[in-house]
Structure formats: structure tokens, C-alpha cells
Amino acid sequence: MSNIQVSPPPPGIEGSGFFATTFEKAVGLARANSIWPLPFATSCCGIEFMATMAANYDLARFGSERISFSPRQADLLMVTGTIAKKMGPVLRQVYLQMAEPRWVIAVGACASSGGIFDTYSVLQGIDKVIPVDVYVPGCPPRPEQLIDGILKIQELVKNEPLKRRESPEYKALLASYGIE
């Protein structure tokens, strides 16, 4: 037998022929293991993202088989690389085009904080324009780190309450970025 591990089911009540759990848990499980990432690859980290996608690290193992290049069909916005001020509005627009629920991961030092480019032309972290869920450090992060970031996102997705996106806190968060 191979050493493939089947992920455990969420807590619930099991009987002969049925398994009952909360709707939230079931949806979370389904969502977490079928994330469609949108690689917003701008620079060096994009090459490491390609390495993560490719055969050696194989991101598809974690349910992200399909890389969605269209923001409309993506769940996860992966900002991999430097975002210049000129690019900021474009990034924001891509974020707005994504449908809820959406998650954002800032890959690399540049996307997280501007990195080594503390200059007049670079946005000092993408969290200035859009809310971010997970930050992956590194310049560029190794594929293992990137996968770790995706797994962190999966944890978030799995445990997210269904009503979170309608909650006043979430609305307030978006409002703080000027998003209706």
C-alpha cells in the first residue's frame, strides 16, 4: 500500500449508512481542498511559483490542480512579486473582480512589506490596497514555504464560518479599504 493519507472527516455523528455533520464543516472541507489559485505573478517570486506548480513540488497535490488565470473563477489571489505603485490600482481591480468568498496570500517580502525595495515607486506591502489573509516571507520564498502558505490558507478556509462574509466585521474590513 502506498503511504497516501486520507484526510479525516470533520467531527460529526456517524451511524450505519449515514454521516451527519454541520453544513459549515462540509462546505469548509470541500472548499479547502479545491482552491483555485490566481497567480498574480509579477517578478522573481513568480518563477518560484512556477517551480511550485511544476512536477517536483506539485501544488496539485493540495487540490490546487487548476490554476485559474481569470479572476472571475478564482478563490485565492496569490500576489507573487513586487507591486509597484503603478500596479496598485490594477491589483485592486483584479481583487474586486473576484467573487466572494475570496482569499489573498502575499507571497514574498515585496508583496508583504515592500521588501528590499523601500523606494518611491514600490507599494510598501499589498495590504495597503487589499486585505491579506496569509503572508509568506522570503525573497523569494522556497516552494516549501509557498506550500506552507497554501496549507495555512486551507486551514482558514476550512474553519471559516459560512456567515463571515456577511458579518459586520468583514464589511468594516472591506470598508477600511474603500471597497463596498
Partner: peptide
Amino acid sequence: CGYIHRAFEKI
């Protein structure tokens, strides 16, 4: 172009 202008020469 200039969408990832990072001002290398200034740095």
C-alpha cells in the same frame, strides 16, 4: 511598461 519599476538605479 513600468509596472514593476523598483528604482534599482536610485537604490
